[in-house]
Amino acid sequence: MPGISNENKPLISKKIDRFFIGLASAFSFVKRFFQEAFKPPFEFREIMRQSYEIGYRSLPLISLTGFIVGIVFTNQSRPSLTEFGATSWLPALISIAVVRAMGPLVTALIAAGKVGSSIGAEIGSMKVTEQIDAMEVSAINPFKYLVVTRTVATTFMIPILVMYTDFVALMGSFLSVNANELVSLSTFFVQVFEAISFLDLFSSIIKSLVFGFTIGIVGCYKGYNSSKGTEGVGKAANASVVMAMFLIFIEELLFLQIVNAIRYA
C-alpha cells in the first residue's frame, strides 16, 4: 500500500541501533558456539590440526618476544633496585611480573595479531568465495567445522603458549641476572618459585583460557560476518585484531580486580 512507512525508521539513532544490533548478533554467535561445542559429533581431528597451526607455528615469534621481554624487563628494573641495594629481589620481581601479567598479556597480544587476523581473513575469504555456503548445501555444519574447532584450539593453545612464554622470559631474565649478579640457575629458579603463589599460577591459566577464547571467537565472528568482496576480507582481519586486543585489555583489567579482591580478602 502506498504511503509513508515507519518500518525503516531507527529506534534511537542509526548508529546506536547498529551498535545494539551488532551486540545482539555477537551474543547470539557466542551462544551458538556453546550450543554447538558440546553437541556431537566432535571435530577432534580438525581441532588437533588447528591447535598445531595456532600453537606450533606461533612458537618462533613467541620465543623471540618472550626472551626479549625477559631481558629488557630485567635490565630496566635493575637500576631502580640497585638504588635500594635490592638487586637480589630481581628474580622474585621478574617472576611476579611475568607470571601475573606480562606472560599472558604479551602472548595474547601477539596471538591476537598473528592468529586472530589469520582466522578472520581465512573465514572471511571462505565466506566471500561461497565455500561456507558449499559446506552448508553439502549438509556439513560450517559453524561446527570452522568456528568451534578454531575457538576450541585457541582456547586451549594460548594457556600452553603462555606457560612457554613465561619459561622463555624467565630464561632471558636469568641470562641477564647471571651475567650481572652471578646467580646460578637453581638459585634463580628457587627464588622465582618462592615468589609466586598457587593463586598466581591458577589465575594466569584461567586468564589465558579467556584470552584464547576471545581471540578465537572474535576472529571467527568477524570472518563469518564479513561483507562481500575482498575489501571485506581485509576489514575482517583488521577488525579481528583490533577487537580482540581491546577485549584482552578489558579482561586483563577485570581479572586484576578479581584476583586482587581474592588475594587481599
Binding site: S125, M126, E130, Q131, D133, V137, A139
Partner: peptide
C-alpha cells in the same frame, strides 16, 4: 532438511572449491 540437501547438488557460479 540436511537429509534432503544430500539429494540436491548445487554447482556454484564461482565453483566454491575449498582452496
Amino acid at each position: 532438511f540436511n537429509k534432503l540437501r544430500l539429494k540436491i547438488g548445487f554447482s556454484f557460479q564461482h565453483s566454491a572449491l575449498y582452496d
